[in-house]
């Protein structure tokens, strides 16, 4: 019974995936990709990885879909997709891909016995950190370096997007995200939803210490609300030269590094937390990170400066 449901799920996923590749119109492909994101979020739920399911729901259903659909809207007048190349090449590449897939499938079908797991090790030291959500403990204690570097990746990604601005526009506002036709319903939604969304975002960040959720999920929700306001034309993207904005971007990673370095004096070294104070410190870092993530994601979607800075 249960496996039959999983089988249905897999079929739906593969349908969406194949359509993502084969759809002729690029917007159809993006819609199929959004569908795939929703389905994958359910799969992560099925695999009992609720933190990941939340991330996938926020990113796959929200942020990535928005980026891609916006690209479609701006691409349409400019350039058409080419069709897939000739059949012979398709077959050759198809065979290659099938071989890769088959190799991967063979690996999956011969799992090691017993399956290796770090879960016991994670559990053994959770007390030391004082948080109840194991994923957050991994992200902010055991593998904090990865999480820190990943935030640096985000900042560099933002710089990379900004770098695409023409020289003349440097420091100015990104292109407006306004929807094509101003619509009363959208304005209404953009007035009602953000307060609730902000609340949910904060809740996800706060909850992340002990329950599924966390900085990235919360930050993405906050970013989505900001983007909604921008799309409903209730606020334009800010000028990219504004130092206040820049500091919001930097505050999360900077605080994380500062806390990490403070570990040299107050605890066992870089990115270790003083015993007993780990939880408040981690929550503080998470709040700052969520703020930075929200601003970075919003700005990345908004794109490079497209107007001269105001005088």
């Amino acid at each position: 019974m249960s496996l039959a449901v999983d089988l249905v799920m897999v079929l739906l996923i593969l349908t969406a995936a194949v359509w993502t590749i084969l759809a002729r119109d690029r917007r159809d492909a993006v819609i199929a990709f959004i569908v795939l994101g929703l389905l994958l979020s359910l799969v992560w739920m099925r695999l009992l990885a609720v933190d990941v399911a939340l991330t996938e729901a926020a990113v796959g259903g929200g942020a990535t879909g928005l980026v891609l659909l916006r690209a479609c809207a701006r691409l349409l007048p400019v350039e058409a997709d080419g069709a897939l190349p000739g059949l012979r090449l398709q077959v050759a590449v198809g065979v290659l891909c099938a071989v890769v897939g088959a190799c991967l499938a063979a690996v999956i079908l011969s799992p090691p016995e017993p399956a290796p797991s770090l879960a016991p090790a994670v559990a053994a030291h959770m007390e030391d950190v004082g948080l109840k959500n194991p994923v957050t403990v991994v992200l902010l204690a055991y593998r904090a370096l990865d999480t820190l570097l990943e935030k640096v990746v985000l900042v560099l990604g933002l710089i990379g997007v900004w770098a695409l601005a023409p020289d003349l526009f440097w420091g100015g506002r990104p292109a407006s995200l306004r929807a094509a036709v101003p619509s009363g319903t959208l304005t209404f939604l953009a007035r009602v939803l953000p307060p609730i969304g902000v609340l949910i975002g904060i809740y996800l960040v706060w909850n992340g210490a002990d329950h599924p959720g966390g900085t990235f999920q919360g930050g993405t929700v906050l970013a989505a609300m900001w983007l909604l306001v921008m799309m409903a034309d209730l606020g334009d993207p800010p000028e990219t030269r504004a130092l206040r904005l820049r500091r919001l971007v930097a505050v999360g990673p900077a605080l994380f590094i500062a806390v990490g370095l403070a570990g040299f004096g107050m605890a066992d070294g870089f990115l270790s937390y003083p015993p007993g104070y780990a939880k408040p410190i981690i929550v503080a870092v998470e709040v700052a990170l969520a703020l930075s993530i929200a601003v970075i994601l919003g700005l990345m979607v908004a794109g490079p400066a497209a107007k001269e800075p105001d005088q």
Binding site: A180, S183, L186, F188, L189
Partner: peptide, 28 residues
Amino acid sequence: AIWALVQLGGATASQLIAEFARRGGGER
């Protein structure tokens, strides 16, 4: 809250999709 949000989101979404379809955005 989930139900209320879906009400709100669904209503808006259908309005927007309808608007989009009416403008001919969807026709090929």
